[in-house]
Design a protein around this nucleic acid. Structure first.
Length: 231
DNA sequence: GATATTTGACCATC
DNA sequence: GATGGTCAAATATC
């Protein structure tokens, strides 16, 4: 794959190159870092998205919708997502997230969650106790907001992915302090019924994308918990 | 008037 | 040439 080694930055850079006619050079994102989520309904994930396109996909019953972060320009947020209904009965919507959110929109809802003070409620939250093994809390205040609960994220690592100090692996033989972050355990949500219909995977990423993916993932779960049960 | 959505066109990749 | 991702003008909504 020619663009296999392209970073998100490079792809974004290429996609914004302009030609004489004012149109850019549009690179496919097939090999860029992404993670996928299937949901039974279209549910807000806490970010402000703006639709910028819709396409009929070959051999697909439903069109694919293209969204970018509302703050693409004012906060240089490069996150995009593609949403497509992949199943009718029951309806399943597949959302593929690309890029990382640089915007701070999610803070609004995290504040809402922080208003929940009872011990019982807090048991529903996610534990990022050791989050600093991946990044610092000051840089990502959202992460710090959920420093007292636990969720696990299963991560699939490409063999040719470069490993760094921050790299998360799916090898559970490694007793890294980050292990609890990389294998998914949704026991906290299993009793939630509808939530069990969700699934997700991180297909490709770098260490920054892992972090953002977990943020979005965790945020997504909590956000919907709040929506459903009014915690 | 500002912002969001729709939709056809453009371009890269397959 | 077919397909998928993005742009941007036109249109809709608030």
């Amino acid at each position: 794959m020619k663009s296999e080694d392209c970073t998100e930055e490079e792809i974004s850079c290429k996609s914004t190159l302009t030609f004489e006619d004012g149109r850019g050079s549009y690179k496919r994102r097939k090999t860029s870092h992404s993670w996928t989520r299937d949901t039974p309904a279209l549910i807000a994930d806490g970010h402000a998205w703006r639709k910028y396109g819709q396409k009929i996909i070959h051999n697909a019953k439903h069109p694919r919708n293209y969204f970018r972060c509302t703050h693409k320009y004012d906060q240089a947020c490069k996150a995009t997502k593609h949403v497509q209904q992949v199943q009718d009965h029951p309806p399943v919507f597949r959302t593929i997230y690309y890029g990382t959110h640089k915007c701070r929109d999610y803070l609004k809802t995290s504040e809402l969650l922080l208003d929940c003070t009872s011990p019982r409620d807090s048991s529903q939250f996610i534990n990022f106790e050791n989050v600093n093994c991946m990044t610092n809390k000051q840089e990502h205040p959202f992460f710090a907001s959920f420093a007292s609960s636990s969720v696990k994220e299963e991560v699939f690592v490409k063999e040719d992915m470069p490993t760094t100090d921050h790299m998360v692996t799916s090898d559970h033989n490694h007793s890294s302090p980050c292990d609890h972050l990389v294998s998914r355990d949704l026991t906290a949500f299993e009793s939630s019924g509808p939530m069990s219909g969700f699934s997700s995977s991180i297909d490709q990423y770098d260490h920054d994308d892992v972090f953002s993916g977990m943020i979005a993932e965790s945020y997504f779960n909590i956000y919907n918990e709040v929506l459903q049960y009014g915690f």
